[in-house]
Amino acid sequence: MERTQFNNAVEQFQSMVYRTALHALGNPQDADDAAQEVFFRLFREKKPFEGQEHLRRWLLRVTVNYCRDVLKSPWRKRRASLEEVPETPVFDRSEQACLYREVMALPEKYRTVLYLFYYEELTVREIGELLGLKQSAVTTRLSRARERLKEKLGEAWQNE
């Protein structure tokens, strides 16, 4: 990919890739590694993108697939339980820190769906296509994740 396009993509989508990987992998260090790897794949990518949305979807898909490979990797799986609990970032408000902590305490399958739905504003159908899940499975995961957040966060999380 050409430098200008690449730099624009980094500027626009680095945080998206990082947050997606953070939700999938649950660890800032691994998420940083993932972002570096995903953009390296973009750097090597030769095919043109049809626009920003096409690029965004490509990056999301590559990130999700990369994280899935990492989670499946026999090398990593055995390490995960020994890693220290990462520090919580600093937030403007205490309820935001609570939300971050509770989201990161959820199992991976809930975290990624939550992020794609609430942050990236993908539809249930789009999330299903991206993750290779039936729409009913996405809905179930969303529903269970919301229940858990409601249980942990109380009034701060609205009933839906």
């Binding site: 945080s15 998420a31 570096q36 953009f39 390296f40 403007d92 935001q96 971050y100 939550l114 609205q158």
Partner: peptide
């Protein structure tokens, strides 16, 4: 505030710690 706004406001404060630079890959 909606859950979506709450979520977005929270996670918009979360960013990676590394610079990603075309020059480094090159």
């Amino acid at each position: 505030m909606s859950n979506r706004n709450f979520y977005q406001e929270t996670f918009s404060q979360v960013r990676g710690s590394r610079d990603i630079r075309w020059e480094d890959y090159q």
